[in-house]
Amino acid sequence: MNEIVLSRRPSKARVSWHAVLIAFAVTFLVLFLVLPLAAVFVEALRKGVGAYTAALAHSEALASIRLTLLVAAISVPLNTVFGLAAAWAMTRFDFRGKAWLGAFIDLPFSVSPVVSGLIYVLLFGAQGWFGPWLAEHDIKLIFAVPGLVLATVFVTLPFVARELIPLMQAQGSEEEEAARTLGATGWQMFFRVTLPNVKWALLYGVLLCNARAMGEFGAVSVVSGHIRGLTNTMPLHVEILYNEYDYVGAFAVASILALLALVTLAVKTFLEWRYGAELAARAPRGH
């Protein structure tokens, strides 16, 4: 007992090691995270608040913000519904090919976003498999908003499902079965029992999904065609402005993205702090 107590007392050598490690970590964080983030805002405001707001009010900047919001507004709900359905299927039923479904859900995580974009170009582009048919029917997917949505849906597909599956597995289906025997319909069971039990994990998954949907660059870049004011999302618009040496404009739009990231981070941290146990799927089962 004594030895343990003694060894816990920080010796001088130990203290200095702690200090070195902490200093290293802090330096690293400042250098690679805080500084760049600060740089975004500094650069954006370099020519004053007036230039900053003017850059944001530019029609193309506004169009890119609107487009990003539109793409996220379509792909996030789609993936929320898909995530719920997939998690439900994975945790409540046994079926052939269940392991395959699990692997497929993870696919977008392991495939490079550029490849994801290319897949859609190959499928729906003018020279793609379905290109001629689409052209005949006057449907434009690639280099248009539908292509952006498709690519974003693909890239952000795993977030909600991956958040829900471990939790729903841990919770089991007994509460739902109880609801059935008590006379609940399928919808009543879902809205009164299933959804409330996973709501925080769901919100967390939606948040991550949304952050990725707004920030996605690679896949979207391939299918966008970079038509200003039409198919440029915020990340794409930032790149274009930057390449044109319009630093204030580039960083102004980038600052909006950075702000979104900060808000996401704040909400995520709050959720983890408040509902950490539930999110980690450690929710006590039946107590």
Binding site: E174, E175, E177, A178, A179, R180, T181, G183, A184, T185, R192, V193, P196, N197, A283, P284, R285, G286, H287
Partner: peptide, 20 residues
């Protein structure tokens, strides 16, 4: 008759109370 319409009272081993 479906579970919903049977009107059978079932008490689960781990109770399965609605935790929320």
């Amino acid at each position: 008759v479906s579970a919903r319409e049977r009107g059978v009272g079932l008490v689960f081993q781990h109770y399965a109370l609605f935790r929320h």
